[in-house]
Amino acid sequence: MTNGALLRVEGLTKRFGQRLAVDGISFSLSRGELVGLLGPNGAGKTTTISMIAGLIRPTAGRILLLGRLLEEDRTTLRRVGLMPEVASFYPYLNARQNLEVMARVYGADPGQIDSLLEIVGLAEHARRPFRTYSQGMRQMLSLANALLGDPELLLLDEPTNGLDPLGQQRVHQLLRDLVARGKTVLLCSHLLRDVQELCQRVLIIHRGKLIEDSPIEHLLRPGELRVFVRTVADDRALVLLSGPARPEWISGVDRYDDHLEVRLPPEHLPQLSAFLVQHGLYLCELRPLEGDLVTAFVERTSDMR
């Protein structure tokens, strides 16, 4: 854990009656980090975010925001922008009026509302009542609200939920810009491609416990490459690659209907083709498979299924 962490969570626990929703989670976020928070439904992600945002009181554990204990100094929450899973505003007010109300509550400058509406693409709809907004527009207003007062930490729960591709792209670019400006983002999303594309680090919560806190490259297992192999005789290739004569750098082979999948360190990829050709197994196809977050996520959380 870094000492200069913007957010530090230690042994965070939340119990709702008999149910343990969050079980002793610890992690920290440094300035300028964009970290993904993943987990299956009901894993405890939203509860964790709610505790950090001061909406839910932890049963045990500590939250340090900007080096100060949240339970002792709640004023630090003024520097945390929350975008909840469901965008919630007053239906009879328009976008501008809704942000005006929130700016007064947050002690933020209402003068920045117009530029925020511009940033999230709602400037031309600013005078329409919130109740007439589409889901995507509601999400964008919620994002603008999270950005009110230029907070240092952003807690975003499913920010691209219900957005069209253009909206998603706009959010991605906005997040990159924010991180480039030194803002810290905790991104909770089921869209693993978003997380893979945007985040530097991933936290995985499963059954209330933090089971993974790794840089994204590590999670995608660059130390072990999966290679798609199709030869003139796959059955013979399987015997060769999994038998006693196989090279020691091959860590595993799986047989599929029309191909084999070989696992090996990336630097041995050229040797694999040479080895197969040497044994008369001419190649029809050989290509490395990209590591993806979906596979990594499913592998780590599949026991619940």
């Binding site: 001061g54 929130m102 509550v105 947050y106």
Partner: peptide, 13 residues
């Protein structure tokens, strides 16, 4: 009902 209590309280009000 509208969930507006969340943004109202989210900044430590």
């Amino acid at each position: 009902a509208w969930g507006t209590i969340v943004p109202l309280l989210a900044r430590g009000a």
